[in-house]
């Protein structure tokens, strides 16, 4: 399973790289979709169907919106020549990436294997969750009972996003 996930993550990285460098914006958007749909398969392989359902629907809707936006615009990416400032930025990014990768390699020796670590907290959630919440689906039990505050925060984030979009996109009110 780790091999399969590695292959899929490799495809996702390739898709993201192509999305950055594509000249045609439509193909860039569709290559960006590879990342989202690859993530769906990763979630399914890691036994998280709840996340996979949300991810596949949200990815489809955002892809539709992005394609509609790109078809309305010029479809070609504006090309700018990198100046000296750009080289400094690229060098800084490479240095930071190298440092982060070094720390990842050093610390990965002391990490648990993917998906096999057990925290004290999650263990106590799993044991007896059905009796405590009455919900057979453990994810719903955690979302609305143990971690109710988090869910309320997520809903508030959605409300705030809608408020922001409606405020920015309102033309009639501005006049």
């Amino acid at each position: 399973m780790e091999l399969a996930i590695s292959v899929i993550v490799g495809f996702m990285i390739l898709g993201a790289l192509y999305a950055i460098h594509a000249r045609d914006l439509l193909s860039a958007v569709i290559a960006g979709g590879i990342v989202g749909y690859g993530l769906v398969i990763c979630f399914l392989l890691l036994k998280a169907p709840d996340l996979a359902i949300v991810q596949i629907v949200v990815e489809t809707i955002t892809l539709i919106i992005m394609v509609a936006v790109v078809l309305d615009s010029s479809r070609e990416e504006a090309f700018t020549k990198p100046d000296s400032k750009g080289y400094v930025t690229a060098a800084t990014a490479i240095v930071i990436m190298a440092v982060l990768f070094y720390f990842l390699v050093v610390s990965s020796a002391s990490l648990d294997r993917l998906g096999e670590g057990e925290l004290r907290m999650s263990q106590s959630y799993i044991e007896g969750a059905v009796e405590k919440t009455g919900s057979v689906n453990l994810v719903t039990g955690v979302l609305f009972d143990f971690r109710g505050y988090d869910t309320l925060g997520e809903a508030t984030v959605l409300i705030t996003a809608v408020l922001g979009v409606l405020t920015i996109l309102r033309i009639k009110g501005k006049k």
């Binding site: 949300v54 689906n137 994810v139 997520e154």
Partner: peptide
């Protein structure tokens, strides 16, 4: 509360 999914999905 029975099968995968829920309010968000």
């Amino acid at each position: 509360h029975l099968t995968p999914g829920g309010g968000f999905a």
